[in-house]
Design a protein around this nucleic acid. Structure first.
Lengths: 215, 215, 215, 215
DNA sequence: CATGAATGAGAATTCATTCAT
DNA sequence: AATGAATGAATTCTCATTCAT
């Protein structure tokens, strides 16, 4: 038998282990994606035991969700306000420009404030429980679009709304797709983003008007 | 010199093991994607030893590429004829409609003839050596688009070609993206596809014309 | 700031798994050599899962190096003191006998203290990252010998130093070769070793003097 | 059912498959050693099926022995003439020089005529049934040396033959060791070899005389 | 909060060899 | 003499997770 006495001075002003794990895990997930990220790597980089991660998080998936949670919450609040607002006047009205600017502001805020979280969610979540997050969002957007079309038709009976459901779904996937492309491109300034959204809106508006035979 | 005469009787009614492996592997890859597909599963489903797969294919990646090879060959031949054709008259000319129909026919043929192979290539290749096949294609398309824009500007000096490179890239990714969406949707008839391509072309044409301030 | 006081009671009577693995691995490596040794065998003999070895060592090579580490450290320290000492007076001086005794003592200590580790390093390392350890040592010795010959020639201009580089290299390999033979022979007492080294030095000295035409 | 008729014209003037296998196998064994050489590689390089190797050779080991057989036969004949010859007069007699020249000629012939086979046997046989060929040879040489010492003592009672058995064994291993070093070095000309053997004999003779306290 | 030890399942891949044709 | 199909055993290694301390 022997007795070891160890004295450890620990600086408590450092990041807590939990936060350190989150920080390192974020890098690992961003570098390899959820599936190929390894808890071993993360823990060894943090300098703690693998099992310690399980004292802070239920499992790998839970750790991933934690990283993305603030974004998810914001996203949900956006969705809520978005869905509840009245937008049927979209095309016709004068406040359309205002709507565009609002959307622009929201998206740029997201991209500038949560670039890594967005990447995790949109590009690196394969294998996690959030793998189909965007698909679910697109589903919702689709259904909403259908409703919107009906409303629009009531107001403007001349418009053509004989558009294939597939195309509506495809169009619903455009914005997420744009977002993904923006996230992949690391060189974009805020001015670039403004221009891109301008172009995007111009492009899709023209497209839709053409499809719906408006004017 | 000598002459050997070999007579081979081959029973065409039962699949050879090689073909069986390919068949089963295709299902496995489609179900789980390249990365998560397991050679163990495949071999056990075929009813042979795992190592036997290696008598027929160099490795997992080789097996995957074999499944997708006919598609790749067709794709390459398309690309070649596509790139060599003169398309700068795209917008203005009368044979534009012809061009559209050609493209439509090609794509519908691909989707109808190689639905699974396309899925493998576009949706389930992550982890394989073909993971970035589509990105490489988009790269090529991008460079081609830049050139096209310059040619176009020469012919029509009034056109606006001050379009962000990002948007050009994004647009180049639209067709692959459309394709992916089509592959995911299993319910589409040939007529649906015709309509979808019509809408797609209508939509994007209007969008581009708007962006380039033509007419 | 905080102070942690940790008391560790450790029962020294039973080997930790780590140490057990090392012990069993040593036997396995000695019995089959690095390449043919199997982690399976080792783990099953220890009575743990194969993967557990990887909790204690990075990989097979790391496990092997761990076994041989104390020897390597000693070897390096020997080399350092060896290389720094002045030995150009080797033949002529009175302290040559002292030098011989020092070398004798060092080698006998190695052989008696690290017989297994030496075997691992010299006889059973093929396939590991230490496969060429001895070749590298011989290389160093060679270059050192060349320098020694030049120094010697300056002091004793009459000596013949027209000796083929190959022979110098061969002679540099003699000591390692002797060591290998000693390790293979398990019956040698310390007295035997003394005699062997005496004979070895007598033999090679006479050989060199003859080659260099001294006296 | 279907019937395939294949006509194969085969040029019989080529190397027979058997010889081709031997040729390619030699390269593979020389490149990777017996253990790491792969029949797959060999057969694929030859352009035949793996199993075909088994139509010509019993197994991997048999194939290896076949490559080395001519050398083994020569070696055995050397040994026989070597062992039967009277060499006790080695040191004292005038025909010692003749003996040296004979040995030199033999060895140089071997090295020049069977360089690859010697490499296979001395350096790359680990894992095969010939792994311990050289050890067995050294054993024989050892026993022979013992006998030689006794004969010598009878003729020259003043000579010291109190030499440790280990040293005799070690010295017996010198020549094989020299041979190995020669094989490893690819830059040696025949003149080099002459010089090396001269030096080697000079060196060892002086060594032995010193050990045995002759003159 | 932190540890280290342990697990079990699973991965791809390589290999020499066999056998019927 | 040559084939191709098939085998089974073996290899190292990675992973997320558990648990008692």
């Amino acid at each position: 038998m022997c007795i070891l006495v160890i004295l450890l001075y620990k600086n408590m002003s450092d990041l807590s282990t939990r936060e350190l794990i989150l920080k390192v895990a974020k890098d690992e997930f961003l570098a390899k994606g959820f599936r190929d990220a390894s808890l071993r790597n993360i823990s060894s980089e943090v300098g703690v035991a693998v099992s310690n991660i399980y004292n802070h998080f239920k499992n790998k998936d839970d750790l991933f969700r934690e990283l993305v949670r603030p974004l998810l919450e914001l996203w949900d609040s956006y969705m809520e306000s978005h869905f509840s607002s009245e937008e049927a006047e979209l095309f016709a009205d004068t406040d359309y420009e205002k709507y565009k600017q609002l959307m622009q502001k929201s998206l740029i805020f997201l991209v500038k404030e949560y670039p890594q979280e967005l990447k995790l969610l949109l590009l690196y979540s394969s294998g996690s429980s959030l793998e189909y997050f965007m698909e679910e969002y697109i589903d919702k957007m689709c259904m909403r679009s259908f409703k919107w079309f009906q409303d629009f038709k009531e107001k403007y009976p001349d418009a053509n709304i004989d558009i294939s459901p597939f195309m509506i779904r495809f169009q619903s996937s455009l914005l997420p797709s744009l977002l993904k492309n923006i996230l992949i491109d690391n060189s974009l300034t805020e001015a670039d983003l403004m221009k891109i959204f301008d172009e995007y809106v111009l492009f899709t508006m023209a497209g839709w008007k053409s499809l719906m035979a408006i004017r």
